[in-house]
């Protein structure tokens, strides 16, 4: 009798354990959950590995770099590498220049692309399909074929002088960095706004322009946030076209620069800076991986900070831009 009761209790316990581990029809079991979490955590680690490596390396002293036992944790944290990298990149000045070079064209780009996207979404006009075709072609084809002729256009206008002019002109004419994608995002967004809303305003006596500024723009708030954030990131990160517009062999001494360009030229700048300081430093101050990594961290730090502050806006952008179609 007692044996039977025990067996029944055991059976019940086993059944409960099975349900918790493997789950039931309504709920996923512990086992399934832990597999999902394990996968997510492992992949997260793989994703963050280069960033973690970069940060840990940049804090290492020269001795730690050579010591294989200090693979991950520096034996003593040093900020010396950052000091060198800041001097090498002329960091604070370059940061200011980069902010200016990214923010001003971004504003122009957002304004113009919103207008063009609205024009395509709201109106019908002859050859609209042909223009849309060109728009999509411009999005798909790599910009290397057009980069050189564009450079020559600006050179003929004497505008390749290390200033913001080429960036601003292309942005105002809807040809900035990834402008085409921005136009497509706005096009998608404005198309989802009920046409009747705009038409109602126009019947009420609002002109076409007023309908755009008073109704379409306020409704497109989410798209404006998305395009502004991404345009800023694109302007910040682009190197090929930036080099083109600033001029071949442009340096920060002669005009604007970006942190990515400074990172590209890091070794040369360091060598130059090194000969300038040579009287005061010892030969052990030759460039090493820790200094390089400190420079890399510094170059991406502004965007990292922006991302951590506005991560919600970034991550929800895809939903809000309506790229996936409704």
């Amino acid at each position: 009798m007692k044996f039977n009761k025990d067996a029944a209790a055991l059976e019940r316990r086993r059944e409960k354990l099975r349900r918790v581990m493997l789950g039931s029809a309504e709920k996923r079991g512990l086992l399934g959950s832990s597999v999902v979490y394990l996968l997510l955590i492992v992949i997260s680690f793989i994703f963050l590995y280069p960033v973690l490596y970069m940060i840990s390396r940049s804090l290492m002293s020269r001795n730690d770099l050579l010591d294989s036992s200090a693979m991950w944790i520096p034996s003593s944290i040093t900020l010396h590498n950052y000091e060198s990298a800041i001097l090498t990149m002329d960091y604070w000045m370059s940061l200011l220049k980069n902010l200016y070079l990214a923010a001003v064209p971004t504003l122009a780009q957002v304004f113009v692309c919103s207008m063009v996207g609205y024009g395509f979404a709201r109106y019908n006009f002859p050859f609209k399909k042909a223009w849309m075709g060109i728009l999509i072609l411009a999005f798909l084809l790599p910009s290397q074929t057009t980069a050189l002729p564009n450079y020559l256009v600006f050179q003929n206008l004497r505008m390749i002088d290390g200033t913001i002019k080429p960036f601003l002109i292309t942005a105002v004419l809807g040809q900035g960095f990834k402008s085409t994608l921005c136009i497509l995002i706005f096009y998608n967004f404005h198309r989802q706004v009920p046409q009747s809303l705009i038409e109602a305003a126009e019947i009420d006596g609002a002109g076409h322009l007023k309908a755009y500024f008073r109704i379409a723009i306020p409704l497109a708030g989410a798209a404006i946030v998305v395009v502004t954030l991404f345009s800023f990131v694109w302007y910040w990160n682009e190197t090929y076209l930036v080099r083109n517009y600033l001029g071949y062999g442009a340096t920060r001494a002669t005009g604007l620069t970006t942190l990515m360009l400074e990172l590209n030229a890091f070794e040369d700048s360091y060598a130059n800076a090194y000969t300038t300081w040579a009287s005061s430093v010892t030969s052990s101050d030759r460039i090493n991986d820790a200094i390089r990594m400190a420079g890399t961290v510094l170059a991406i730090a502004p965007l990292m900070i922006l991302y951590f502050v506005l991560q919600k806006q970034f991550v929800e952008s895809v939903d809000k831009a309506g790229i996936t179609g409704e």
Partner: peptide
């Protein structure tokens, strides 16, 4: 509305 883009493109 699309004039700036047409000039640019």
């Amino acid at each position: 509305f699309i004039l700036p883009w047409i000039v640019g493109v």
